[in-house]
Every structure is written in C-alpha cells, then in structure tokens.
C-alpha cells in the first residue's frame, strides 16, 4: 500500500507506481496462451519492487514471447531473432542503474540464440531471463523447436518430432558460473509470482524456464501436465521458494531441495520422469561480469583527457 511500511510507519515517496505504470499495449497473444499470465507476473513484480519504469528495459528477440516489451510501458528493445541476450548484456554493461529483463522463447534462446544463452549464463550479469518454453515455433506456425517432445507432429515433422527434446535445465546447470536456475509452469500464479520475484531480486543472471501453454498448436503438452500433476515435482526450501499449503496441494509430488546444492540440482534436472518446479540452483556469490565492465563510469572529462594524453605519450617519438 502507498507509503505504508510493515511497521505501520509511513514513508512518503514522490512517486508510487501502480500496475498501470508498467502496462503497455493490449497483448495480441491468443486466448488461452500462457504468455498472458507471465506478463501479469512481470507487471506485478515490477509494481511490488517499485522500480522506475524509465529505469526498466525489457529486451527480447523474435517470436511470440518476444512481443512482451510492447506490452510494457517501460523502455524496451525488440531486436533480432536469437539475439536478445547480447543486446541485454550490452545495455547492462555500462548502465548498471538499469533494471534489465529478457523475454525469449525456446526457439529464440535454445536454438538460434543457443551460443548467447551459454555465454550470457557464464557472464552472469544482473539480468532477469524468462524463457517462454511452449515447445513449438508459434509465430511462424508450428515448426519443431528444440524442446518439442518426441513424436509430437509439427509442420516440419508431420509424422512427429524425430529426436528427443533438448533438456534446457541440465544444459544450463552444466554451464560454469551460473547463479540462478528455476523452472515454473505458466498456470500456477502463486508459484509463478514467487519464482519470478526471487529471480528479479537475485543479483546475477536469473534463468527461469517457464513451461508455457500453446493451446493453438500444441495443446497436448500443457494438458498432459495439467491432467497428471504427479509428473511435476515442486521443490521448496527456506533458501528457495516457499508456498502455502493450498499451492502444495496442487502439487502432490513435492520435496525439499536446497538450491545451493548444485549436484542435487543436476540430478533433479536429469530425471526425465518428473519435471522439477521451483528454484533448482541459487548461488548469490558467483562473480558478475557487469561489475567488471562498468569500470571508469565515474571518470570526469578532465580525467579522460588526462588519460588520453597519457596514452598518446606511450607513442611519442
């Protein structure tokens, strides 16, 4: 509530932001698309943290997911297919004051942008990375993506996807210097909000893979999970996410998992029989590249001029 703090004291801010301050154009995603819920969660987390809209940048590539910036009223960068991460890292490199979000998809991040995914995770710059994984190319109308389940028919593989899908979690957990890896499903609002909030609070690159329903092209993927909650395992921990019992009841298969345990996280990710949800790994102390790239920002013009002359002196005859 406006200005009222937990101890009932009142703090008057000159600006207080409501959901509307982060809400942009009306989304053009399909009815029933999981993206709507993710967008709502992003708006809420922004509002809750009261980040200034002008200090917020939503960066995306190309695909259904990547329309997200247009539905924000912050700054946004809707760039090239697969290339959201280099742009986001570049923004963060010299502007540590900006709050950078990345919206990307399974095709954008795990296929055409795969190289950037690996390296951005290692750079571990302070970026909230949301991968909208619906297991299909939606915008280009139903082609196989790296995460399309085996045998699911698509327009490029009409008799079913030929290869077992890529496991984005085990790949991500294998990258050096990762600091935050989580997985959620788009249709559980409390868990969705809790994980995205934690991801946003984390200093470093927070990777959140969101199993997202595409009711138009691959309804079966989301439906299978919704019909059989036992195929998912909710991970809770005091260092990870904690949800109330109501949420836990929706995930009968749940367990305690300490997110500082990388080996355990990898084992959970490797297990194909059940989909882990929650925070798999969290290391608040991993080195952040943005701390290294933002050097010299406080130099005055006079400092720079002196430095320039010193540099030229190195070549003086």
């Amino acid at each position: 509530m406006f200005g009222l703090k937990g101890d009932w004291s009142l703090e008057v801010k000159d600006r207080y932001f409501t959901l509307e301050d982060y809400t942009g154009a009306v989304p053009r995603w399909c009815t029933g698309c999981g993206d709507h819920g993710i967008l709502a969660a992003v708006h809420r987390v922004c509002r809750d943290s009261q980040i200034k809209p002008e200090k917020t940048v939503a960066v995306s590539g190309i695909g259904c997911s990547s329309r997200l910036p247009h539905y924000m009223s912050t700054y946004g960068f809707h760039g090239l297919h697969g290339r959201a991460l280099p742009v986001a890292c570049g923004i963060k490199s010299r502007r540590p004051d900006l709050d950078v979000w990345v919206a990307t998809g399974d095709g954008d991040c795990f296929s055409i942008g795969a190289a950037h995914w690996i390296h951005a995770m290692r750079y571990n710059m302070d970026i909230t990375l949301l991968v909208f994984d619906n297991g299909i190319y939606g915008l280009t109308k139903k082609q196989t993506s790296p995460t399309t389940p085996l045998d699911v028919p698509t327009n490029t593989h009409p008799s079913g996807a030929l290869l077992p899908p890529l496991n984005p979690l085990s790949v991500t957990l294998g990258i050096t210097n990762i600091s935050f890896v989580a997985q959620i499903v788009d249709w559980n609002a409390p868990l969705r909000h809790e994980v995205i909030k934690k991801a946003h609070e984390h200093k470093g690159t927070s990777f959140v893979r969101i199993i997202q329903r595409c009711p138009v092209y691959v309804e079966s993927i989301g439906k299978a999970l919704q019909d059989e909650p036992a195929r998912m395992r909710l991970l809770t921990h005091e260092k990870g996410v904690q949800v109330d019992d109501m949420v836990k009841r929706l995930f009968p298969n749940n367990a305690e998992h300490d997110p500082s345990d990388l080996a355990a996280a990898r084992a959970l990710a490797e297990d194909d029989s059940v989909l882990p949800l929650g925070i798999l790994y969290h290391n608040p102390d991993a080195p952040q590249y943005d701390k290294m790239t933002a050097t010299g920002l406080d130099m005055t013009i006079e400092d720079r001029l002196a430095g320039m002359n010193e540099a030229l002196d190195h070549f003086a005859l």
């Binding site: 280099p86 742009v87 963060k92 390296h119 790239t293 010299g296 720079r304 430095g307």
Partner: peptide, 25 residues
C-alpha cells in the same frame, strides 16, 4: 585510461549486439 572497456564476445554477432545494446542505453 579513458574509462573504457573491451568486451570479447562469444561471436561476431554477439559483439555487435553488445555494442548496439550499450549504444541504445
């Protein structure tokens, strides 16, 4: 000496993407 930083990117595309990001900002 002039407060700059050299980023060695993972590839040529990322290199220009990074520069475009910084410039946009």
């Amino acid at each position: 000496l002039t407060g700059g930083f050299v980023h060695q990117a993972e590839d040529e595309i990322a290199a220009i993407g990074f520069a475009i990001g910084a410039s946009y900002a």
